[in-house]
Nucleic acid binder design. Structure first.
Lengths: 303, 303
DNA sequence: TCTTTATATAAGTTTTTGTTATTATGAGCA
DNA sequence: TGCTCATAATAACAAAAACTTATATAAAGA
């Protein structure tokens, strides 16, 4: 009886494709290059054809390999699910959690909560990544990222995803000291030239719904779109005009500036809901719960 | 570094649960009982808890095992998908195809086409099973059965399933010789006492839509519901009345009886579509195609 | 209590997987 | 074309793993 495909063979093959050469793949796997060669050869024998073209550099998956790759990866992902489910049964929290957040949340939330989380759960290894909403959701669906911390509304399809609401925060106007009254209507808002985030930021799209796009994008021939709220605020400081920031960013300001440089917006639209998003099949429920609790500590820093 | 869960461990565990004892499971796996014991112990060590209660007979999955079982089985099913996909790439057709049909198709279709199929593809191992529609669909969803040959309409949800139409056949009246004219309207049909298949047969439900239920079920204090069309026809032969049979069953009759003992029904409702049903994720596309071609040979037996 | 029946353990063998040393191959370039 | 460098394949051997038979141990029924 010819033996069957094993997990290691598939793992090695994935590593080989990722590394691009036998030698470096073997190195990352902490085995010798011949050992890797043998397992790949065995896998190829079982598959009944070549899987990598050794001639090209980096080594390339053959057409056969490309057809089988989804199934090969599926096997590995399901093994990982199994092991996640096992870890989820243990009382001691441990494991790996790959977290990603959108750029308008990352700089405010993560530095605050991560130290506490790492402290509370020393055996959870957390990987952090910053991605725009669209790419983040794709990464979750491809199981490259476990959980995303992001903001509703989301235009992307939510199939296969679970949404866990964290809290809602208001959007506010950031302006020169005393330049606006303490609360603006949407109509009043539309009169101001507004600095926008670069395309792909979900907050940009939301802000565009609040402001007059004609006024927003350009001012005095300048068309500056930044990827960070900090930059936009510095722009306002030097050039005047306004930008829209969420509470998270406002909380970073000094007590005085929070009142003199920001104003409320009197509209239900001027808020966003912070949520956790993860694939429905994700098994790390206890890690997720730990993250949720840690995240909520942002609201009550002294608890 | 502690080693990881392997495929064989999970395979052995599945076999253990299926067999109910270490000794018999080891026997079906063609290994010794201590070998099985060792692998299960290793798996339990990796999982961090007992998986089977050895005291009870048959051995029972612990609560922990029950929680993990879906993930364990998922791993095995995805390995099988991988291997199916591999077999699907080879030019020579081989593999395992688990076919199931409903009872009103099985006795007419399979004996006709199976010999041809087995002849044409000697390396395809076919397992046949007979199941009512509901259970058949569940078996397909659980991946216990690869493909079902059944009849539309289906009331069950078709989520995750693909439907491949084969052909449409008419339903006809079976009666005593010369007892009816050659074609009956639905109204004429409702006047006859009709023998019905037992509950759970999809043809029964369809027939109930054609006949008068009040007349159908009971006659002369008799309430006979059979699981086979053959029995119903013998009942008609001895007791009079009618029953509804599909073309498949009619084709089994002698040329003479096909005209003297059966009548057409002048209604668009008096037909059913024969289809192949399989899970969307099924990889054995070429085996499926072979089955489809073989099945269609039922229509043109001399081809 | 004594069988009976089943799983666990022990000791030794085979198979598999891995290592190091060496050879073969193929791409890039004079 | 032939040389050189980088990289993978092969050979020979070592370590680890998985399996075997024989035996011990535990639980259930007579």
């Amino acid at each position: 009886m010819s033996s069957a495909i094993t997990r290691v063979q598939v793992q090695y093959f994935e590593a080989l494709l990722k590394a691009g050469s036998f030698a470096t793949a073997a190195h990352t796997l902490h085995i010798s290059q011949p050992a890797l060669t043998m397992q790949i050869q065995r896998l190829e024998a079982l598959v009944g054809g070549a899987l990598v073209n050794r001639a090209s550099r980096p080594v390339q998956a053959t057409p056969l390999a490309q057809k089988l790759l989804p199934h090969l990866l599926e096997v590995l992902r399901r093994f990982e699910d199994l092991e996640d489910a096992i870890a989820d049964q243990q009382e001691h929290l441990k494991g790996h959690l790959h977290i990603a957040t959108i750029p308008t949340i990352a700089p405010y939330l993560l530095p605050t909560i991560l130290p506490k989380l790492v402290d509370a759960h020393p055996d959870i290894q957390m990987d952090i990544e910053e991605l725009p909403t669209e790419q983040l959701l794709e990464a979750i669906l491809q199981e490259r990222v476990d959980v995303g911390i992001m903001a509703l509304p989301i235009s992307h399809s939510l199939q296969h995803l679970d949404i866990l609401p964290l809290w809602t925060e208001r959007l506010r106007v950031y302006h020169l000291e005393g330049a606006c009254q303490s609360a603006l209507t949407l109509d009043a808002l539309k009169k101001w030239p507004t600095y926008l985030l670069a395309q792909g930021h979900c907050l940009r799209d939301q802000v565009l719904g609040l402001c007059d796009p004609a006024v927003s994008a350009q001012r005095q021939g300048m068309h500056y779109q930044s990827g960070s709220l900090e930059t936009l605020m510095r722009l306002v400081d030097h050039q005047g005009g306004i930008t829209i920031i969420p509470d998270m960013a406002r909380n970073q300001l000094s007590q005085v500036h929070q009142t003199t440089k920001t104003s409320a917006i009197t509209s239900e639209l001027a808020q966003r809901q912070i949520v956790m998003v993860y694939k429905q099949t994700l098994q790390k429920k206890r890690l997720l719960e730990a993250l949720r609790l840690g995240t909520l500590s942002y609201l009550s820093p002294h608890a």
